[in-house]
Structures are given as structure tokens and as C-alpha cells.
Design a protein around this nucleic acid. Sequence first.
DNA 1: CGCGCTCCCTGGCCGC
DNA 2: TGCGGCCAGGGAGCGC
Length: 274
Amino acid sequence: MPELPEVETICRGLAPHLLQAGIVRIILRRAALRVPLPKNLKSSLNARTLQNITRRAKYIRFHFDDDQVLIIHLGMSGRILLHKSLPERYSKHDHVIMHWDNGCALVFNDARRFGLMALSTESELIRHPLFKDLGPEPLHSKWNGRVLYGALQASAAPVKSVIMDQRKLVGVGNIYACEALFDARLHPSRPARSLSREEAVQLGISIRKVLKEAIASGGSTLRDYVRSSGETGYFQHHFQVYGRQKQLCSVCRYPIRIMRQSGRSTFFCEHCQN
DNA sequence: CGCGCTCCCTGGCCGC
DNA sequence: TGCGGCCAGGGAGCGC
């Protein structure tokens, strides 16, 4: 379930347990996820100390000493499990396990294997192929509806597709695109460039709102981030439209509708969103 | 170039 | 309870 809020929640949840910890062992139980795992993963990270954890778009980045950066993307089904002690056994889709000098075991689990791991260095990070074409962070203080308006003006595609386009802005996936458009009362099929400046400003406010609320909701579970089972801080968040087809709109009581856009399900209220 | 479709992969759920 | 079909929150690649 990883869009920006989930990835942010994971980063915040891992930090207290792993910052300043050192890697003592890496176990690879599979050669490739979406792409082959870096051949030098073990040699590059073994005995390194974790200095920082950052998020960019939907990517998690572990910054180690000696200039090493581990990049993790969870794809659709990726999970990160943090065990307080070494697990007795691993499950079928536990692909990469990292043992730390504080006794923790970090497990990357991904049933569908759409996730990825890559290595970079601090100096190469900005130019890294995974990052060089990414748009702005919507939660950055300098991002707002006016910036969004410029991106929307450049495209005739449906507004929903454009706010999910990681080159225009990052972090918004199918769920939060649906939620933000509902919050802004905008129909998902509207051509992006048909939005007025005022509508774009409202959409910018709504995007930030739904992302922040989801992070706040995830944050409340961080206390339980590490459980004996190794479950992570994924959270159940209440959605207004996502997954609620046929249920009644909380605003007008018309049934929420579902449609397909670019191969993805879109949930919306036909009555409220124009 | 911009846009939409398909595909990568497995598991869960729904309907029969 | 079993089974086939469909769907899934991401993103790359390809064709039009």
C-alpha cells in the first residue's frame, strides 16, 4: 500500500531503531526483484553504519557512512519488517534480510516483486536515473497550487493521470489521487488544462491535506512499529471515496461510483465532483 | 512528445 | 470447498 504517506511512515518508524546501527550480515534469498539486486550489495554495505534515512517520492533511502546509499522502492506489495531479534525462519517472499549490530533484522518482503533495491552514492544521488526526472515534493514548503497550475496547464490528459505522474509531482498514487480530487470537488476526468487557477490552488491544498492527514494517521501507530511478529506500521486509514463504490457519499449521500482510467480504478462522487 | 495500454508477479477475493 | 476469473495501492516500455 505504499504511496507517499506510507513510505514516510515507514521511514519515520525505522529511524529510531536503526540510526547509528551497523550492518553485520546481508542475506539475499533471490537474485532479482523488478530488476536484479545489485551484485555488490553485500560488499558495499557490510560493516557500514546507517547515518540517515530519507524519503524522496515513494523511495526510501538509507544513507551509510563511506558515501553509500541504499535505495528501496516497495512497488505495489513490498513490505519492510523489522524484527527485534533474528527470526527463526523466513517466509516465502522474504527476499532480502539485513542483520544489524543491535540485534535487529530488517526484512524486505515483496510477493509481487515489483519493488527494487539499488545502490548509489551521495554525490550521484541527484543524477541517479531513478531520481533525475522526478517532480517536486508536494509537502515541500515551496510547493503549492500555483506550481501545480503550471504542471496542469501543460497537459490535456485527465487531471487524475497528471497528479499521479511522478514527473509532475511525486508521491501521489491511485488512492490519494482519488481522495484529493474528491476533497477538491473536481471530476477525475477533467482535462488537466481545463482547471482554472482557483481550481488548481484548491487541488494543491487538497493534495497536501490528504497526504498530511494520512501521515498523521500512520504516525499514531508508530509506537507499535516493531512488534514481536515483525509487522510494520502500515495503517488503516479512512477514505472518503477509495474502495467505497456503491456506498453513499458522506457529503451528498449519492452512491460513490467506480470507473476505469488508464487501466486504474477511479472512485468518485458524480454529484459532488465537477 | 504525449498519452494510454500492456506487462511484470503473486495472492486474495468473488461468484458460480 | 474448489476453482476460474478478476483485481490490486507502481512504473517501465512500447506503439500510435
